[in-house]
Amino acid sequence: MASRLRKKQKDDFGTAYRGHEGQWSWMFHRITGVAVILFLFAHVVDTAVIGWGPEAYDRVTEAYKNPAVHVLELGLVLAVLYHSINGMKVTLIDFFPSLAGHIKVVGRTSAIVFVVSAAIVTGIMTKQIIDLL
């Protein structure tokens, strides 16, 4: 698969790694990072509404308490989780360069940690969604 991606790639602009180990985690890291910062922009504003009193703030938080928004919320939590775990992987490799020689093991370990914790989080939050229905 790596070689196929390399052949297809005429210009490597914006695609560091070019199909090597880390290509997918690099892409997911970007996507989850952008998703989280976009939510943060909204979240600072919705929290700031508390400065306008209980009536205003409770109207805002009410918007978060519906099943459809809970599905988006699950996506947000998974994005934070992925970005955290993959970010630690990147930081560990950068600070302990000898780990780069074991990139496959490190990458798979980080993927397994994410999948297991994502399954737990999804279980708990799915129950919240079902309880709301």
Binding site: P54, Y57, D58, T61, Y64, E73, V77, L81, M125
Partner: peptide, 18 residues
């Protein structure tokens, strides 16, 4: 922050002014 606010006892449904 994410785990504390979203997972225990109903998650964000408990968040209000109080």
């Amino acid at each position: 922050h994410t785990l504390i606010m979203h997972l225990p006892s109903g998650g964000v449904d408990r968040v209000d002014f109080g």
